[in-house]
Simulated assay, not measured.
Amino acid sequence: MNKKLIIIIVLLLVIVGGLTYFSFQQHNENKEMAQLFALDKQEMENEYNSFATQYDELQVQINNDSLKQKLESEKLKTQRLLEELRQVKTTDAAEIARLKKELKTVRAVLRTYIIQIDSLNRLNEVLTNENKEVKMKYSEATSQINSLSQEKKNLNQKVTLAAQLDATNISISAKNKRGKETDKVSNVKKLAISFSIVKNITAETGERTLYIRIAKPDNDILSNGNSTFTYENRSLDYSIKKYIEYTGEEQNVTVYWDVQEYLPAGTYNVYIFAEGNMIGQKSFSLK
């Protein structure tokens, strides 16, 4: 073998060895790069997940609907980018770089909202403390007003009670067709109810309307129908309606009920009302 051939063979061996070494080095570098991209991708996924969770936590801290909608929009964007990242291959360096850039934007936006919400929370805390103080003062003022109102109400009730009409000396007479008194229910044709409206200088003078209710033993009211008045926010049937001109002095009143219905034996009750108050009551019995 001549000298030139030996030199050529040696050169070829050097070249082949160099290429083999370079290929081996390149393979190792590519493997290391792939591992780095995989780690980088995993780290980015963790951050995206963390940001989405933080958006949820921020939404819980606020009551502002407009701000909640913005946070929800950012959270959905973060979840969309996370899904894109999961679909990217570790060898797609360009796409990973793009999503890394997006991650920086998400991080900056999230930081802005955190600062904004923290500021709002601190402001709300100040306003809450001020509100508590205002409520306390208002409660104290309301308590004083209620106390004065109750005193006034008590005085008004006393004045109202003092001015209320009162019926005394109530008597009921059952009469037969000849106008004579009877206690036999089968003979009763008319009921005469007499009473006195007592003197009261504190009561207003003028026309007054009296309502008389006659209750049978079963508590059914003797009534001509469609005859009602208001008492304690209820409509009550009445038997007799009587107008009087009250002068403040004692006044005797007599009213009559003509019996046209069946009357059972037993105890009857008569109730007298005026100006929304029951001013007298009396019972009587028929055999």
Rank of each mutant, 00 (worst) to 15 (best):
Q150D: 10
E125P: 06
D92N: 03
N121G: 12
N156E: 09
K89C: 04
I145Y: 07
S119I: 05
K152T: 10
N129P: 05
R98Y: 06
A93C: 05
D92M: 01
Q157R: 13
V106W: 01
L103H: 00
I115Y: 11
A97N: 08
S139F: 10
Y113Q: 03
N129L: 15
Y113V: 03
T105Q: 10
T91N: 03
T128I: 14
V134F: 13
T90D: 01
E95L: 03
R107Q: 11
L120M: 13
V109D: 04
V106P: 00
Y138W: 14
A93S: 06
Q150S: 11
V88L: 00
T142Q: 13
Q150C: 03
V159G: 04
V109M: 04
A94S: 07
R122T: 08
A141F: 10
E133L: 13
Y113T: 03
E140I: 09
K104V: 15
V109W: 00
K89R: 09
L120E: 12
L155Y: 11
K100F: 02
N124K: 05
R107M: 10
Q150V: 08
K158Y: 04
K153F: 15
Y113R: 04
E151G: 11
N146I: 14
S149F: 06
A93M: 03
E133Q: 14
L127A: 12
R122A: 13
K152E: 09
Q157I: 10
V88W: 00
R122I: 14
N154P: 02
Y113M: 06
E102Y: 01
I117Q: 01
T91F: 04
K135Q: 15
R111I: 09
L148F: 03
N131C: 08
R111E: 14
V134P: 04
N154C: 07
Q116K: 12
N154I: 07
L148I: 12
I115E: 14
K152N: 13
E151W: 05
N156W: 07
E102M: 03
L155F: 10
R98K: 14
A97T: 05
L148A: 06
T128R: 15
L110K: 02
E151M: 13
S147L: 08
L120N: 05
I96T: 01
S147D: 09
R107H: 08
N131I: 09
V106D: 01
V88S: 00
N124S: 07
A93D: 02
K100R: 15
N146V: 13
K101V: 08
L120A: 08
A108G: 05
V126Y: 13
I115P: 05
K152D: 09
K104M: 11
I115C: 05
L99F: 02
K158W: 03
E151Y: 08
A94M: 02
L103K: 00
